[in-house]
Design a protein around this nucleic acid. Structure first.
Lengths: 279, 279
DNA sequence: CGAGGAATTGAAAGACTTCAATGACGGTGG
DNA sequence: CCACCGTCATTGAAGTCTTTCAATTCCTCG
């Protein structure tokens, strides 16, 4: 996968709101980047440890997670190409979560010193970085809603929708299909459910013809249904979805037509195996 | 309740990490503040609407929440005196959540223009504000863990612990007792459970002698047990807890001695009321 | 081809929700 | 001062979603 000149991804991301001046672009282009290939499942940042650099995702996925008593963990974010996964470390001495590669990933490390220097010299750059953290916070907030007020099916559907939109905003997944190296246990840890239940929900999604979810590749078959069932509204990502609309400052539309699940369909969980539909 | 000169609260908050210069302090002191008394249950910010000012909490509580399909909502944060509840609006054109007063509150509004001007002129101020948003994000992240991987009892215990520590960091609740004008339905909406279940859990907490939870005032009877049962570790608030320790950059200690609940105690839910133990 | 991780399955138990009704409390108007 | 009202807290019972445990099968890789 082509990652372009590494800083072009960063520039693209930072300019979602306001264009930068030529000077500021140059400051970004001049940042010292260290390109690194990381294998799957390796920590980029371990909770409690300090770091002196930020991590730009060029290819692959990262996720941040926190340990919970009892050998469990909760995944709190995914990072896709173009994201700076640990921007918070720039101004917080230590973070309390870990950041790990999902599959193999191509990363670029940027020293804090260089980033701070660039930010100190440009108000616009500071704001652009700040805004990045604000948008990540908006995603965290929606994640809370997801865990707090949706059932397992909707949670998974919602996260799939979110990732799809974010990938599209990064120029990927244009055909609603993308490689996704997570295991069902990863999905479960992100959605706050057990891996067994995640498995059953995913099977139902397949059966309903919503997605093809083969090992490590995800193809969305019915985007509209997935959005509806996942109670997904990309307003909270509008800043991410780039040029879609120019920020209508009215409220959300209430999900029209209710929010019915087909759970009472002829195929509740106990259904005999297989019958993998050919949708 | 004394709120001091309004800007002193803000200064106190911004200087948790680095002291500001005399000049920067003056910039804060010169900010035009509009003091307002708000009644309970009034929106300070409605989702989807733009605003041109930030809200500093001087007394009382605010909470942010997002609507969910089906006339439900999820509370995603509480704000205590000293917090700037809508700092994100400074650089995001529109937020997708609402912010509402929990009980009556004393607020101070600061125009975006004045804040931006102050920030533009001082790198240190910009960083201080930015750091505020980063710390709020750390709280969101722990909230995700709370909803994703803890049962109802632990969720409520955890949120109570968090609020206690944050209030203490603002110089309140020194005796582990504070007025808290939330209803049990508010607690339920914050914890992602039903109000009925919240009620039963709170009763169990009372029964176990963990808290006095009378209408609108909360007194913690057994802080250590509450922390343990809520799986609470205030590392993620270390930035908030001010002068407690100087950032040990090692990992969390894994919750020692497991995480056993007393749920199988002689007093499961069906227990007849009262018998407030004397723990 | 064997090993090990990942996915899948079934059955039983548990946590939590929903519905519906009742009790408690505070504030308001007469 | 008291009846009335709405909000909040409480209770019980039934039902649902989700977890847990324990196999079993599938897949991928060396």
């Amino acid at each position: 996968m082509e990652t372009g000149r590494p800083y072009s991804r960063l520039l693209f991301r930072l300019e979602r709101f306001n264009e930068l001046t030529t000077e500021d672009r140059q400051r970004i282009a001049d940042l010292p980047l260290k390109l690194v290939n990381y294998p799957a499942g390796r920590d980029v940042l371990s909770h409690g440890y300090a770091t002196s650099q930020c991590t730009l995702v060029l290819d692959g996925f990262l996720f941040s997670h926190k340990p919970v008593s009892g050998s469990r963990r909760q995944i709190t974010s995914f990072f896709v190409p173009g994201d700076v996964a640990d921007l918070a470390t720039l101004y917080l001495p230590a973070v309390d979560h870990s950041i790990t590669t999902l599959g193999p990933a191509v990363l670029a490390f940027v020293p804090h010193t260089a980033l701070k220097e660039a930010a100190d010299r440009s108000t616009a750059l500071t704001q652009a970085f700040w805004r990045e953290t604000l948008m990540q916070a908006a995603i965290l907030q929606e994640w809370i809603v997801n865990l707090g007020r949706r059932d397992a099916f909707a949670r998974i559907a919602h996260i799939v929708c979110e990732l799809t939109v974010r990938l599209q905003a990064s120029g990927m997944a244009r055909d609603l299909s993308f490689a996704m190296p997570w295991t069902q246990t990863d999905v479960a840890d992100a959605c706050g459910i057990s891996n067994v239940h995640a498995n059953r929900v995913i099977q139902e999604m397949r059966y309903l013809g919503l997605v093809d979810w083969n090992s490590r590749r995800l193809t969305i078959r019915d985007w509209n249904a997935l959005m509806r069932l996942g109670d997904f509204n990309d307003d909270y990502l509008q800043y991410c979805a780039s040029i879609k609309k120019d920020y209508p400052l009215t409220g959300h539309a209430a999900p029209e037509g209710g929010f019915a699940r087909l759970r009472t369909s002829p195929l509740a969980y106990g259904v005999p195996g297989g019958a993998k539909s050919d949708c």
